[in-house]
Design a protein around this nucleic acid. Structure first.
Lengths: 243, 243
DNA sequence: GAGCAGTGTAATGTATACACGATCGCGAGA
DNA sequence: TCTCGCGATCGTGTATACATTACACTGCTC
């Protein structure tokens, strides 16, 4: 990471995923330049990159804004991602996973089990789970030996992160469920059951999508309710949601 | 299309797909700026966009170069695309296609039939087929109502174009085969057979991929043979293939 | 002769000034 | 009072100059 544009891009991506910018808000290039202590040129390069990743919207002569996704759209993202992760899992089985890749997946499973059974304590379960998940699916993707698939999945994984980071912490129940699915997927992979592994992986992601979408719908309902209450009070709604 | 960056981007994309630049060659920003009669700024914006589309490679401090794909990588692209087009077709059936969408697909089929049976004459069958194909799959994608899926597919469709444009014209046999597959897919969609439609669409794209990859392998063999002959002659090989 | 260091050149990365377009507010007229 | 139009202002689009990096070539040393 040598150029300023790259540094800005990384920091901005993190801050967007962290939820620092309110959804739909416009990003002013001059302000960002001042904030990062660089000129507008690397800022524009970073914004262009983030727009290509789907985190920002770009309108000619109107600049960049934080992209928002409806629950419906998020479901579509997870459905696409499910198809791709399913394919990756099948290709991993067909190519054969290396011992190192299998070991990494096993380690992800073991560590999750340790945390779930309270044999081990983690300060932030959300961060922990995020890492574990990355290991597990990263190993599968690596075994798939399909660069384009990896590229498409990278573009499909970062967007949901924006929204799942909105929930303070993952439900322990949800993690336990996902953990069981991981175990089953690894079992299918180990037994070289390509079609079964594909179906399981696809369903695994789809379930995760349903969970996120459910949370988003709850959130939207609460927001709508709060807005209605505010209107009834005659006061201004607390925060603009969309531009 | 108002900004210069957009115009440059469109023109450059077309020229890359047309195969104007030799594979792997580096794109000099100053030269491009002179060629398009603009400054380096919109050139850099266009290059950044094309890199995000997968048509160019970017290396910090080393600029952009025309990306090359091996036959193996191309197969991976088509495998991913097959999974996505399959998903799109299934979602189209599940959502239900409108009469207009069905009519467009039917029209694509009818016009192809007219050309194949010589009832109609087309100057450039490759261009004709390209349009027909776009109609057909575009209608399905529209019916799928999945923005992210559409976005991923856009990124997966343009890359093979670079290589399929290398073959002077599509085989009429290949078009006839693909046509039959289109007929079967539309039949499955009309009868609301979601799973069958998904399988057929997936296989349809996979077959197209095998065709392109086969041509690429032939091409690679020829190139390797020519290079070997040139080396035997003691003269320099005709063209550098990769950087 | 081989290897390494230093320098020069060409290309990219960045800063900055200016041009253009969009948007908002104010005022005039119906 | 409402609407239309015009100008002011803010922000993005573009050009250009400068900084910095990478690479190749040359000359020196071992």
């Amino acid at each position: 990471m040598s150029t300023r544009a790259e540094r800005v891009c990384t920091q901005l991506r993190d801050s967007i995923i962290r939820g620092d910018h309110i959804a739909g808000s416009r990003l002013n290039e001059v302000d960002l330049a001042a904030e990062f202590g660089v000129s507008r040129t690397p800022i524009r390069a970073a914004l262009s990159e983030l727009a290509s990743e789907g985190l920002l919207d770009y309108m000619p002569n109107a600049g960049y804004s934080v992209r928002t996704y409806s629950a419906q759209q998020m479901l579509g993202i997870f459905e696409a991602r499910a198809a791709l992760e399913g394919l990756a899992t099948r290709q991993a089985v067909e190519n054969g996973v290396t011992e190192a890749q299998r070991a990494l997946m096993q380690r992800a499973i073991d560590e999750t089990e340790a945390v779930l059974s309270r044999r081990r304590w983690e300060a932030d379960v959300t961060v922990f789970w995020s890492h574990i998940n990355t290991w597990f699916h990263g190993a599968i993707l690596e075994a798939a030996h399909n660069d384009h698939l990896a590229w498409l999945l990278r573009k499909s994984r970062s967007i949901p992160l924006v929204y799942s980071s909105m929930f303070r912490r993952f439900d322990l129940n949800r993690i336990a469920k996902a953990h069981e699915e991981h175990v089953t997927i690894l079992e299918a992979i180990t037994q070289r059951q390509a079609v079964r592994a594909e179906s399981l992986a696809r369903e695994h992601i789809y379930k995760a999508g349903l969970f996120v979408v459910e949370r988003m719908r709850e959130h939207e309902m609460q927001a709508a309710h709060a807005a209605a209450m505010a209107r009834a009070d005659g006061s201004a709604p607390p925060q603009p949601v969309a531009p």
